[in-house]
Design a protein around this nucleic acid. Structure first.
Lengths: 205, 205
DNA sequence: GATACAATTACCCAAATGGGGTATTTTGAA
DNA sequence: TTCAAAATACCCCATTTGGGTAATTGTATC
């Protein structure tokens, strides 16, 4: 029996979901709340298996709610259930610790399936959300750096200095400097920190 | 009609998948190959809708194959279909540009569903893979840095130097240096580059 | 009140870094 | 074969950085 708690400010949606969950074999909606403030203390008491969480809530946002819940109950599985489909909502939710992300257009059957999926170690996502997540891994822009420069930059990211790089690549320190100067020029940066940030961010390394 | 090409070195698996795809309404397996070397030139000719790609192949790996295919056909949807379940295989595949990742234990019905899903902008993944992907967004360790140090580190990541930071935060250059020294100590690093990398990687900023 | 931690200011020094320039050789693509 | 890019190597010098040490203040928390 999967024990679910629901946080959703729209009373109609809340009621409907609660009924659907309770009317299905193997699922039980322990309680439902209209906001995080009232929900959080009780969730920590009741320790449900899964929480369905809206994002746009009065008071504390659902994302902040996730952050706090995961702080006290790291093993709790939380599925976002929201109309928000923008990158920020998705990525901030996942960074906060949500284990799934469904759009409100999701069918009741799919929601129930997602609840059992998340409880079994899955990460149910609406397909457009999943694509966003997967695409975020792919470097968006091709690296402007030559293979050698990429190699040098990778070592800079490890915190190696000129000398270490030159010894590792069997080239002189002068050459390392030249590569680094070219890297800075190509990335439009003027320091190591910026270069590392850009490299990590754009996945050049 | 979804046009599929299959790359899989096991003849039995290849045959079976090919039959299943061709025997299903709305799907067509244009061709199948045992390795990337022979597949790539023909895929660029036939421009299928979806490619099913194994990872462990003779010669070029499936991951490298994805990288090359996405280089020439950026809009092609590729689903990895493999026994490999380790983090490296998953993340390298997605970084290379795969749009989906299924384990070989996936049922034929689910594979067919995934093909249409990926063609419709989704990102089908086996549930354990999806959880890996989602979990990778969550910072594993809470930041050990004080708020002020976090602020300083954020500016270092922007490529600001001591003076710029001190002016922006209305503190003396000496204080900035002290903060940075403490940051290095807490993060166990010895240079700006390393600190930036660690900060970005662990999402301290 | 005591203790602990964060934030702040201060100084010294050696090493690393960034910016400017120039030049040769190798490699690969047109 | 010709040309461009990449990789190699070198010079000078001002500035930045990293490491060490120490002291003061405020704000918590105990």
């Amino acid at each position: 029996m999967l024990r679910v708690i629901l946080i959703e400010d729209d009373p109609d949606v809340r009621e409907m979901l609660s009924l659907i969950i309770n009317d299905t074999e193997g699922f039980s909606c322990l309680r439902s709340f209209a906001d995080c403030e009232s929900a959080l203390p009780l969730i920590e008491k009741e320790t449900p298996d899964v929480v369905l969480m809206d994002i746009d809530l009065p008071g504390m946002s659902g994302i902040e709610g996730v952050r706090r819940l995961k702080g006290t109950l790291p093993h709790l599985d939380i599925i976002m259930l929201t109309v928000q489909e923008d990158d920020d909502s998705v990525f901030n939710s996942l960074c906060a610790g949500a284990s799934g992300y469904l759009l409100k257009s999701t069918s009741p059957a799919r929601i129930l399936k997602s609840i059992s999926e998340v409880a079994n170690g899955g990460a149910p996502m609406s397909s457009s959300v999943a694509r966003k997540v997967v695409t975020s891994f792919k470097p968006q822009s091709p690296s402007p750096l030559s293979p050698r420069e990429t190699e040098v930059l990778r070592m800079l990211c490890e915190g190696q200095n000129y000398k270490a790089v030159s010894e590792a690549l069997f080239i002189s320190g002068h050459t390392v400097r030249m590569h680094i100067k070219n890297i800075y020029k190509k990335l439009h940066v003027h320091s190591r920190g910026e270069a590392v940030k850009k490299a990590v961010h754009n996945r050049f390394i």
